[in-house]
Amino acid sequence: MEMALYHPHYGYYAANRGKIGAHGDFLTSPHLAVDFGELLAKQFAEMWQILGQPQSFTLVEIGAGQGLLAADVLSGLQRHHPDCFACLDYVIVEKAAALMAEQQQRLKSWQAKVKIEWRSLDEIPAHSITGCVFSNELIDAFPVHLVTLTDRKLQEIYVTAQPNGFAEVIDEPSTSRLTDYFDLNGIDLFSPNYPDGYRTEVNLAALDWLSLVCDRIQRGYILTIDYGYTATRYYNPRRSQGTLQCYYQHSHHNNPYINVGQQDITAHVDFTALEGQGDRCGLKTLGFTQQGLFLMALGLSDRLTALSQIDAKNAQDIQNAILRRDALHQLMNPMGLGNFGVLIQSKGLTKQETERPLIGLREF
Results as ranks from 00 to 15, higher is better:
Ile139Asn: 02
Lys113Thr: 07
Ser120Arg: 08
Gln345Tyr: 06
Ala14Asp: 02
Pro237Gln: 05
Asp208Ile: 01
Leu27Gly: 04
Ala71Glu: 15
Tyr158Cys: 09
Leu307Arg: 02
Tyr229Glu: 03
Leu300Thr: 11
Thr232Phe: 10
Ala64Trp: 08
Tyr12Cys: 07
Gly360Gln: 05
Gln290Asn: 12
Asn193Tyr: 09
Leu223Asn: 00
Trp118Ala: 13
Gln162Met: 14
Leu343Asn: 08
Val202Thr: 00
Ile359Tyr: 13
Gly67Ala: 14
Arg177Asn: 07
Gln277Thr: 13
Leu286Ala: 01
Leu32Met: 03
Gln105Lys: 15
Leu295Cys: 13
Tyr247Cys: 05
Val73Glu: 06
Asp140Leu: 01
Gly131Pro: 02
Ile20Val: 14
Glu168Met: 12
Ser29Phe: 05
Asn254Ser: 14
Lys19Glu: 12
Gly292Ser: 11
Leu323Ile: 00
Gly336Trp: 04
His7Asn: 15
Gln49Asp: 07
Leu69Lys: 12
Asp35Asn: 05
Gln49Pro: 00
Ile187Trp: 12
Asn255His: 10
Ala64Arg: 10
Tyr234Ile: 01
Ile310Lys: 07
Ala4Trp: 14
Ile258Glu: 15
Asp208Tyr: 04
Gly348Lys: 09
Asn203Glu: 00
Cys214Phe: 01
Asp35Val: 09
Leu74Asn: 06
Asp89Ala: 09
Glu363Ala: 09
Trp48Arg: 01
Trp118Arg: 10
Leu349Cys: 12
Pro237Thr: 06
Ala112Lys: 14
Asp317Ser: 04
Ser109Arg: 14
Ile170Asn: 01
Gln218Leu: 13
Pro173Met: 08
Gln291Leu: 08
Asn255Trp: 00
Thr130Phe: 01
Arg362Ala: 07
Lys115Asp: 11
Leu121Gly: 11
Gly282Pro: 08
Asn193Cys: 07
Ser308Thr: 05
Ile318Gln: 06
Tyr6Met: 07
Thr266Tyr: 03
Leu138Val: 03
Leu154Gln: 04
Arg280Ile: 05
Leu77Trp: 10
Gln78Gly: 07
Arg239Trp: 02
Ser174Lys: 06
Phe288Gln: 04
Tyr198Asn: 00
Phe288Ser: 02
Gln345Trp: 04
Leu99Gly: 11
Ala112Ser: 13
Thr230Gly: 12
Leu207Trp: 00
Phe44Thr: 01
Pro192Ser: 10
Gln66Ser: 15
Tyr181Gly: 03
Glu137Phe: 03
Gly338Asp: 09
Leu146Lys: 09
Lys115Asn: 13
Gly11Glu: 06
Asp171Met: 04
Gly278Val: 06
Leu204Tyr: 01
Thr354Ala: 13
Gly282Ala: 12
Thr58Asn: 04
Ile157Val: 14
Tyr6Trp: 10
Val342Gln: 11
Asp208Lys: 02
Arg239Thr: 03
Glu156Leu: 03
Gln43Phe: 07
Gly52Asn: 03
Gly220Glu: 01
Leu361Arg: 07
